[in-house]
Write a protein that binds this DNA or RNA. Structure first.
Length: 571
RNA sequence: GGGCCUGUAGCUCAAUUGGUUAGAGCAGAGCGCUCAUAACGCUUUGGUUGGGGGUUCGAGUCCCUCCGGGCCUACCA
């Protein structure tokens, strides 16, 4: 039994996430967490909402709520949706928690003590009308290069030229439209991560088997141009972790907060502390996951994230942990994902294009989404959601191959025998062959799951389901029943056990259907089938079961067409 | 501009890292079965691996070049 720490990239607080966000981090992390638990490992699966930053403040302002209230509400919404999708977090925390405030300030102090914090005076654009400093992208104006009149302060989207806000002609606030802007000097803290470049480089080199996507992004940032740049880790905002606090090793930072990308990863640790608090445990309970001097030396730590998050997890966060000069647990494996597109374009929150988590659950059960998203996870490339593909995959895989198998076996048994596992008969070479095939494929499935090869795991699982249909076709208990009912009884007894077996191994992908199946088999034996023959003897003759409701209703053409229209944009 | 990823059957993807005749699922065609959600099984059609050139006994895989798609480029998170 191993101890496995799993974190999913934190979903940002400003709204409901779409399916692309879900499949890029939380969902595959959940798959892995469920699998590890099923194998008997001790798992700590952590996620949280990322609540700080300008977008959160603006989103709150839009609703007219105080930002703290807005975040609390949205956290509740996201937590509910996570439950709806069956995301089995041990704790779903908040980066605005007291724990994160304390830890973020702790790390900042440690980094300062190690000489890794530098005060830098910068010039930034201040908007009088908005009463705030504006991040570059929140300043709009005319591009000096191509004349596009909606160029942003960081880059012109029309000609892709990178800009400085002061380059813009007729700059204005993207928030209010105000042109009453002023360049002001403001003091910020920088993390001197450039001094850790070689350390980080060696650390990344020492990792084996990380996805190319992960290492290539990290290497780019380490070696591109002048190499790894120092980063500002504070901002002129109200909502966040205060930079000036009791015991802070600097002065004059009042009214500033730490930048989200400094405090968000620290929330992985803080959320584990929140978990301990929520369970009435003391600090040692979370420290044994995070401190190598307090029991975390045998922990394997795996992170899941979309590719946009890679630089922060390969460089900034490790720099924070290493720079603290305390024995914090570093990540062992970073599983990163490409993007999921929607029907020929990108998901768009602003245009309401694509399917969002709340909408998804309102039209179909979570398992449908989980199965499609995971079996099409964008591991090697960006992938694409189309309704046609969704309908075809879900109907074939879930309804026909798995759902119908459960249906045909249980109904056959009910009509020819009873709602009890039938007794009598013996198993023969055909059954031995099935056990051998199941074992081979199950071992392959386990290997893919352990390697976090999501798509391959899905296709192997599906192949395991297919073995059941192949066996039934060959054994043909409906024929055997006419001449040798005992033979049919033995076959169906095996098939009923196979259904429970499928519930166990499918649970990481489709937990709801697995639970319903297990309930129908009137069992609660979720133990992993280390030995297939033993697993297929779990339900003895005479054991009662029920015929479950249709496990997966098919998606009709009418539904597909309607949804296609409904989600095409303009939410 | 620079960097990275990518292009394989109508569609979605594999191919043990250079090794026999490029494989699966879906869709299509044919046959079988009748327990089942018109479900299942078997067989089968379908490929100049984006184009061109090169290295090699051997290239989907390595190199060059051209074409297409995507991402990143540090103040969105």
């Amino acid at each position: 039994m191993a101890r496995i720490l799993i974190t999913s990239a934190l979903p940002y607080i400003n709204g409901i996430k779409h399916l692309g966000n879900l499949v890029g981090s939380q969902l595959p992390a959940d798959l892995y967490a469920r699998y590890c638990r099923a194998r008997g490992h001790e798992v700590m699966f952590i996620c949280a909402t990322d609540e700080h930053g300008t977008p959160a403040e603006l989103a709150a302002a839009k609703t007219g709520q105080p930002v703290a209230e807005y975040c609390a509400e949205m956290h509740g919404v996201q937590a509910e949706l996570a439950r709806g999708f069956g995301l089995s977090f041990d704790h779903f925390g908040r980066s605005s928690s007291r724990r994160n405030h304390a830890l973020t300030q702790h790390f900042a102090a440690r980094l300062a003590a190690a000489g890794l914090i530098e005060e830098v005076a910068e010039k930034q654009v201040y908007s009088h009308a908005d009463g705030r400093f504006l991040p570059d992208r929140y300043i709009e104006g005319t591009c000096p290069n191509c004349g596009h009149d909606r160029a942003r302060g960081d880059q012109c989207e029309e000609c892709t030229k990178q800009l400085d806000p002061t380059d813009l002609i007729n700059p204005r606030s993207a928030i209010s439209g105000s042109t009453d802007l002023e360049v002001r000097e403001t003091k910020h803290l920088f993390l001197r991560q450039s001094t850790l470049r070689d350390t980080l480089d060696r650390w990344i080199d020492s990792q084996r088997g990380w996805p190319v996507l992960t290492t290539s992004i990290a290497k780019k940032w380490l070696h591109d141009g002048d190499g790894l740049q120092d980063r500002g880790i504070t901002r002129d905002l109200d909502w966040g972790v205060p930079v000036q606090y009791d015991g802070a090793p600097w002065q004059g930072m009042d009214g500033k907060v730490f930048y989200v990308w400094f405090d968000a990863p620290i929330e992985y640790i803080a959320a584990t502390a929140e978990w301990a608090d929520a369970h009435g445990l003391d600090d040692s309970a979370w420290q044994r996951w995070w401190r190598e001097d307090m029991g975390a030396e045998d922990v394997r730590y795996v992170q899941f994230m979309g590719k946009d998050n890679v630089p922060f997890h390969t460089l900034s966060f490790p720099a924070t942990l290493i720079g603290s000069d305390e024995p914090w647990k570093l990540v062992d494996y970073i599983k990163s994902f490409n993007y999921l597109n929607y029907d020929g374009g990108q998901f768009s929150t602003s245009l309401g294009r694509g399917v969002f988590m709340d909408q998804a659950l309102s039209i179909l059960p979570a398992d449908y989404w989980r199965w499609w998203l995971l079996s099409h996870a964008p591991e090697n490339n960006d992938s694409e959601f189309t309704w046609e593909n969704f309908q075809a995959s879900v109907n074939k895989d879930l309804a026909d191959v798995l759902g119908n198998l459960v249906s045909r076996v249980t109904k056959f048994c009910r009509s020819k025998f009873s709602e009890l596992v039938p007794e009598g008969g013996t198993l023969g070479p055909r059954e031995d062959q099935l056990l051998a095939d199941l074992t081979t494929r199950l071992r392959a499935y386990e290997q893919h799951m352990e390697a976090m090869d999501v798509r391959k795991s899905a296709s192997e699982l599906r192949a395991l389901w297919v073995l059941g249909n192949e066996y039934l076709q060959e054994a043909a208990p409906w024929s055997a029943f006419k001449t040798d009912p005992e033979q049919a009884a033995a076959q169906i007894r095996l098939a009923l056990n196979l259904i429970r077996f499928y519930a166990v191994i499918s649970q990481p992908f489709i937990p709801d259907a697995a639970a319903r199946t297990m309930a129908a088999m009137q069992s609660d034996d979720w133990s992993w089938p280390d030995d297939v023959a033993t697993a297929l003897n779990t339900l003895p003759a005479g054991h009662a079961f029920t015929v479950p409701e249709v496990l997966f209703a098919k998606i009709t053409d009418d539904q597909r067409t309607a949804w296609e229209a409904q989600f095409s944009g303009q939410r």
